[in-house]
Computed example of a mutant assay.
Amino acid sequence: MPLTLTITEGVFPSEKVKEAVVQITNSFLKNHGLTGNAVMTPNITANVHIVPKGFSFSGGEEFVGAWAEWKVPSFALADQAVIKQHFAEVTEIIYKLSGGRQPKDNIYVNVVHAVDGGWNLDGKAMNNEALGAAISKG
């Protein structure tokens, strides 16, 4: 389940990128009750995009921002309590790693859900039922 973390250059030092990914991943797993799950843990992937200053915009004006976007099956990040808790934790992670300099109102977290059957694990397309069965073995 890929995480795309996009930050404007300078939100936090590049040496903090791995720490951000680890903490956000751990928050996702914890909030879904999957900490230590041998199937899910290696299937949480991430890529990080660092946008040069001057190439991030809000309302058409340059600004400094941070975005965390998940692409997940429709059953993940589907419960409002889980969403609220995880999104709050992600915001706090980015805020703290920025040394408190990145305004929380310029930290964005969202989720994109795949249609049922539009996901794969171990190179095989799976629907939600098959994914759930695979994850429950972990």
Rank of each mutant, 00 (worst) to 15 (best):
L5K: 02
E62G: 01
N106I: 12
F57K: 03
Y95F: 15
L34V: 07
I24D: 00
S98F: 06
N120P: 00
N26D: 14
A38V: 08
V48H: 07
V115G: 15
Q85V: 08
P73F: 07
N128Y: 01
P103Y: 01
K104A: 10
M40C: 09
L34W: 04
S14R: 12
V109Q: 05
S98H: 04
S56E: 01
I7N: 02
S74F: 09
E9F: 05
F28I: 02
E9Q: 15
D105H: 15
Y95K: 07
G65E: 10
V82N: 05
K30T: 13
K137Q: 14
A130E: 15
I93T: 10
E61C: 04
G54F: 03
A68F: 04
T6Q: 13
G123Y: 08
W119T: 09
V112L: 12
V115Q: 12
E69L: 11
D122A: 14
P52F: 08
M1K: 06
N120V: 10
S98L: 04
Y95T: 05
N106Q: 15
T8P: 07
G117Y: 09
F87I: 03
D79A: 11
V90S: 11
A78C: 10
V17M: 09
L3E: 07
N120F: 14
V17E: 11
Q80Y: 05
A76Y: 15
K30W: 02
P52V: 08
P42Q: 10
G132K: 10
L3Y: 11
G65K: 10
D105Y: 12
K124L: 12
V22L: 06
D116K: 07
E61Y: 01
V82S: 06
N47K: 11
P13C: 11
Y108M: 13
T4R: 14
A114S: 14
V39C: 03
H49N: 14
I24F: 02
P13I: 10
N106G: 08
P13D: 14
I83P: 00
V90D: 07
V115I: 14
K16N: 07
Y108P: 06
S136A: 15
I50V: 15
K16T: 00
Q85Y: 05
K16S: 03
A81S: 11
I94N: 06
F63M: 14
G123I: 04
V39I: 13
A38P: 00
W67G: 02
E92I: 05
H113G: 11
L5T: 09
K137V: 03
V109I: 11
